[in-house]
Computed example of a mutant assay.
Amino acid sequence: MNFSGAYTALVTPFQDGKIDEDRFRAHIEWQITEGIHGLVPCGTTGESATLTHDEHKEAIRICVDQANKRVPVLAGAGSNNTKEAVHLTQFAKEAGADGVLLISPYYNKPTQEGIYQHFKYIADTISMPMVLYNVPGRTGSNIMPSTVARLHKDIPQIVGIKEATGNLIQVSDLIEQCGASLNVLSGDDFTLLPLLSIGGAGVISVVSNLLPNKMASLCNAWNEGDISTARKLHFEMQPLNRAMFMESNPIPVKTALALQGKMDTDFRLPMVPLADENLKKLKAVLVDSGLL
């Protein structure tokens, strides 16, 4: 499985404290209709940290069913508990996901050897395509390029990594050490174009919840050698890229979707509604971007 292009890190709609299946399906369907290349349920943007195991499985099941093999589904299945990650990965495989996104263990702060052994244990237990997820700002630890290169060399089913350090020097070192056989995906929308320029494969995007066609079009333009169009789309989306991180993700993006009438602003604590002063700023960006 070649995970490349624009993948949406899906928001999970809630209503009355439960997953809103109808709106979740509608959101997935709209993403596919708009030309998105792939879908990622149960990532950070999907509030995976506060989903129960049953809800986590339900979100993956709904996404796989609605996508119906029209686009790949890369299911979030990571945990800081290695055996829990195995359990979620096994479910994702049985549910029909095309691969899993595996965050490095958070809070524990394992050594590089601990990170290596965590992913190796999962891969030794279950055979399916795996994409690592490196986001030190959330986990408290960094998967170093040398560790990724070792994992990719030793474990063929590790086919990609979502890189959310925002550090292009690290990403460059990573691509240099791993080569073209590892798909490096941006985990920060604003770094997509520069990452593509040094050999990256695409993005797992927050902003594509709102602009799936434009994010997919940027990747398409780059792959077709149309650099000027890719650059134009990059700068068109930059105000929205910034707005989506004015507060912790997914607060701004879910608020934006609610303002469009696509879902409720129903968050799981400790996530709370967007502050009033930021709500005004968000509305202004959405209007300027033609989304309100």
Rank of each mutant, 00 (worst) to 15 (best):
N2V: 15
A6T: 07
A6L: 06
V11R: 02
P13W: 01
G17K: 07
K18Q: 15
K18M: 14
D22G: 13
D22W: 04
R23Q: 11
A26H: 08
A26N: 13
H27I: 06
I28C: 03
I28E: 01
I28S: 01
W30H: 14
I32P: 00
G38C: 05
C42I: 08
C42R: 01
T44A: 04
G46A: 11
H53L: 14
D54E: 15
D54P: 02
A59Y: 11
R61Y: 09
I62L: 13
C63Y: 01
V64G: 04
D65M: 06
Q66E: 15
Q66P: 04
A67G: 00
R70E: 12
S79E: 01
K83M: 15
K83F: 14
E84N: 12
V86I: 15
Q90L: 13
F91Y: 15
G96F: 10
G96P: 09
A97S: 14
D98S: 00
L102S: 14
P105H: 04
Y106A: 11
N108T: 14
P110Y: 12
Q112K: 04
Q112V: 03
G114H: 13
I115K: 04
F119P: 02
Y121W: 04
I122A: 03
S127P: 00
V131L: 06
N134H: 03
V135D: 05
G140P: 04
N142F: 06
N142E: 11
P145Y: 00
S146T: 14
T147D: 06
A149D: 12
K153Q: 14
D154I: 08
P156Q: 06
P156W: 07
I158V: 15
I158Q: 08
V159N: 02
V159W: 01
I161D: 03
I161Y: 05
E163P: 09
G166I: 02
I169R: 08
I169G: 03
I169N: 11
V171E: 14
Q177C: 09
G179C: 13
A180L: 08
S186R: 09
D188H: 14
I198A: 09
G199P: 08
A201Q: 00
V203F: 00
I204R: 07
S205M: 07
V206Q: 01
L211V: 14
M215P: 02
M215E: 12
N223A: 14
S228W: 03
S228I: 06
S228A: 14
K232G: 00
L233A: 05
H234M: 07
H234G: 09
H234F: 11
H234C: 05
M237R: 01
P239C: 10
N241M: 10
N249M: 04
N249Q: 06
P252S: 08
K254V: 06
T255G: 00
L259K: 10
Q260C: 01
K262E: 11
D264H: 11
T265F: 03
P273S: 12
P273H: 07
L274K: 09
L274Q: 03
A275K: 13
E277A: 13
E277V: 08
K280A: 15
L282R: 11
K283P: 04
L286E: 00
G290I: 00
L291F: 06
L291W: 05
L292A: 11
